[in-house]
């Protein structure tokens, strides 16, 4: 069973239905007790960093998430859900991230004459070839992004793919049992579904 954490941040139905299209049992939950029973966890999310941390705190999910991740339960963070796994964000005024991954979340630089948010289909360039989440995904595949902030991991070795938007930012990260994607696999048609299928197959 895969737990999808519901902490009041945006649409989780699409993640759920993508998982269920492969016949996987899912549980949308905000109850920390449910994490115990889960084989894997997905932390989705769109919206603001502070609100998200507040939402997790209210449900007593922060310490519980950290505990389970440290106990090697496999987790996938999607978009904001991935950003929350890092230590801090330029978007946050009065909260810190879970700090499970070292590094920070930065805003795209206005001076690069970029349009913000970064919305649309962009490519993932693989720098780490053996990440099981991207098994059989061709290099330079297009996936769907929708965000204004991006992760800057301290340890560059956890970066699986880069995406070019004014600069090369980390679009997939992987450390042991922790996976994070800045894009939305649940909105990325065939390629996205394949990534979700790979996540389901992880042991």
């Amino acid at each position: 069973m895969i737990c999808i954490i519901d902490y009041g941040m945006g649409n989780i139905h699409s993640v759920k239905k993508a998982l269920e299209s492969f016949g996987v049992k899912t549980l949308v939950t905000s109850n920390p007790q449910d994490l115990e029973k889960a084989d894997k966890i997905i932390l989705p999310g769109v919206g603001a960093f502070d609100d998200a941390i507040l939402g997790l705190k209210k449900k007593d999910l922060i310490s519980n998430l950290i505990k389970h991740i440290e106990n090697k339960k496999t987790i996938l963070g999607i978009c904001l859900g991935m950003q929350l796994l890092f230590e801090e964000s330029q978007e946050a005024k009065d909260s810190r991230g879970l700090g499970i991954l070292k590094g920070r979340i930065k805003k795209f630089d206005n001076n690069l004459s970029l349009k913000i948010p970064h919305i649309g289909w962009n490519q993932i360039k693989m720098v780490l070839k053996d990440c099981p989440l991207l098994k059989d995904i061709p290099d330079n595949s297009y996936v769907y992004f929708c965000h204004s902030y991006y992760p800057e991991p301290e340890d560059k070795n956890i970066i699986v793919t880069y995406t070019d938007y004014g600069l090369d930012f980390a679009s997939v990260v992987w450390k042991d049992n922790i996976y994070g994607v800045q894009f939305h696999p649940e909105k990325s048609q065939a390629i996205g579904l394949k990534i979700i299928k790979n996540f389901i197959s992880l042991c």
């Binding site: 649409n11 699409s14 239905k17 769907y144 929708c146 048609q189 996205g192 579904l193």
Partner: peptide, 11 residues
Amino acid sequence: VEKIAKNIYMP
């Protein structure tokens, strides 16, 4: 909208 969302995997 719910019905559409259940059936497609794109924004």
